[in-house]
Simulated assay, not measured.
Amino acid sequence: MDQSLAALIGANLAFVGTHFALSHPLRAPLVKAAGPTGFQALYSLVALATFAWVIVAFRAADPGGALWNGQGDAPWILASVIMLVASVLLAGSFAGNPALPAPGADDLARRGPHGVFHVTRHPMMWSFALWSAAHVLVSPTPRVIVLSLAMAALALIGSRLQDGKKAVLMGAAWQGWESRTSYAPRLGGLAKAGAVPWLAGTALWLAATWAHGWLIGLPAGVWRWIG
């Protein structure tokens, strides 16, 4: 294996592994030892340091050859649709999300599904997983696949672990929320997501795909055809 790719794998393992360790087995003892504020500072420092390592390692990694041709119109059209759905899920995930660490989470969990939660109870995490899938689809190089798999694993395994942690912390409120929502996306729920997530998500999608061409030099989304 190329050494630069091995370094990228190591960086991603460190980023994902420390995130899981600090979010679950090490969280309680570290909060007890350092206090909530100290733990949050440590968590943020580790997350930023390992993510910076991922970025540096990704840029240094040999791109390698693509495993298939992702440059035709068909892969880009499909990836653009996937990214639009991901953007709608992400935009809608901030409104009334009981998984977020905010006051009143129990009351939010007791509500019926609303907005993008008709699709999944983890819209933010699934938006990251869809982002990963879209990038592998159009850029199936070893370094992109390594990064995308790591981000998807962090999102999807992390959300599963979060279900267990929230069930302990919130008890019946979270268990009721789980029974009324789905872990896996139900795409039919997009029709019930409402106008605000769709409008905000579309605006986010247009802005992000425009910035993709400006920052990376590779047009994405509709800008690939109208830019």
Rank of each mutant, 00 (worst) to 15 (best):
S179P: 05
V119K: 07
R27V: 00
A79Q: 06
R180F: 10
Q71L: 14
P113C: 09
W205Q: 07
A57H: 06
W76Y: 15
M170A: 05
P123V: 07
A172W: 07
W223Q: 07
I226L: 10
T37G: 14
S4G: 05
P197F: 09
S93V: 05
W223F: 06
V85E: 02
G104Q: 08
A193S: 13
Q3P: 08
W76T: 12
W205Y: 13
N97I: 02
D106M: 13
A91T: 10
A14S: 06
W53Q: 02
G65S: 15
V222D: 01
L108E: 12
L45K: 06
G176R: 02
T209G: 10
G96I: 04
L30S: 05
G17C: 04
L156D: 07
H135L: 05
P113D: 06
Q175T: 14
D163Q: 03
G92N: 11
A129N: 10
A153T: 14
A191L: 13
K165I: 00
S159K: 02
H24W: 14
A74K: 08
L78Y: 04
T181G: 02
I157D: 12
W223A: 09
A109E: 05
L169H: 15
P140K: 09
R110M: 13
G188Q: 06
L206F: 02
A102E: 15
G112T: 15
H114D: 14
A150Q: 03
A200D: 12
G96R: 04
T50E: 01
V81A: 11
S132W: 06
R160P: 03
P25I: 01
T120Q: 09
H118G: 08
V81I: 13
G10S: 08
H118C: 08
W76I: 09
A34W: 12
A7C: 12
V31W: 07
G171V: 03
A61M: 01
H114T: 11
A133G: 10
S93L: 07
N12P: 02
V138P: 11
A208R: 00
R110T: 12
L137E: 05
L199V: 15
L26Q: 00
F117Y: 14
A167M: 14
T181Q: 04
P197M: 08
M1R: 08
L156R: 08
L204M: 14
A47Y: 01
G201I: 08
F58M: 05
L149C: 11
H212E: 10
K165S: 12
A66R: 11
P185K: 09
A61N: 07
I226K: 11
W225V: 03
Q40L: 14
S44A: 14
A14D: 00
A133H: 04
A28L: 08
W214P: 00
F128M: 13
A152P: 02
H122L: 09
L5G: 10
L204P: 10
S127P: 10
H114E: 13
P98N: 01
R186G: 06
E178D: 15
R143W: 03
L89G: 09
V85W: 01
S148N: 10
L13E: 02
H135V: 01
V144I: 13
R224V: 04
